[in-house]
Amino acid sequence: MSPAPIIELEEVTRIYPLPAGDVVALDHVSLSIEEGEFVAIMGPSGSGKTTLLNQIGCLDVPTSGRLRIAGREVGQMTDHELTELRLRKIGYIFQRFNLIPLLTAYENVEYPYLMMHRQNDATGWVAGLLASLGIDEALSAHRPAELSGGQQQRVAIARALVNDPSILICDEPTGNLDSRTGTQIMEILSDLNRRGRTIVIVTHDQTVAEYADRVITIRDGRPS
């Protein structure tokens, strides 16, 4: 028996109503991603990759169709429930790192932990996570602007992992990094996947896609 799909899309359509006419960003997309899978989504600009990622990442809901994340129907969720789902089940890694500039590296990682647990980490989990990604205590005390791109992305990965999510969503995670650092980051993600984490990655980069078990190519809002 194959593992249950952790992400399931059935005829998902996302239409953006614009004054010049409706834009169909996703057109009746059906796909499923199983737990522990490493999936790369590829496609030209404007093909709907990011829209698909936003749906899977519960930042957006379909205009029509059904989307299930970790067995839960997303389409009917309130904003509060969607936010709670993001907090508990999904970790984000962005191309531009997206760390909160006013917080130190440590605080950035601790932030989702505080949101979920309502109190700070007394177990050393946050510091351990940072250390495992090569960010020592001294670096942890720096603000994002004082860190290199690679260091920032490591902090972002630590932040994505801090609440132990089932799914890691990565939007061009190596896009702003040099190739050596990019390879290091991909090795980290690959390692996380080997340890059972489901990873969905959007990329233009073929070498990044090679880390994936499966590549979904999107064209004009549909998998091709």
Partner: peptide, 13 residues
């Protein structure tokens, strides 16, 4: 942008 980051990380309105 910061608000967007915080919201994506699971910060309630």
């Amino acid at each position: 942008r910061e608000i967007g980051i915080m919201r994506s990380l699971g910060t309630q309105k």
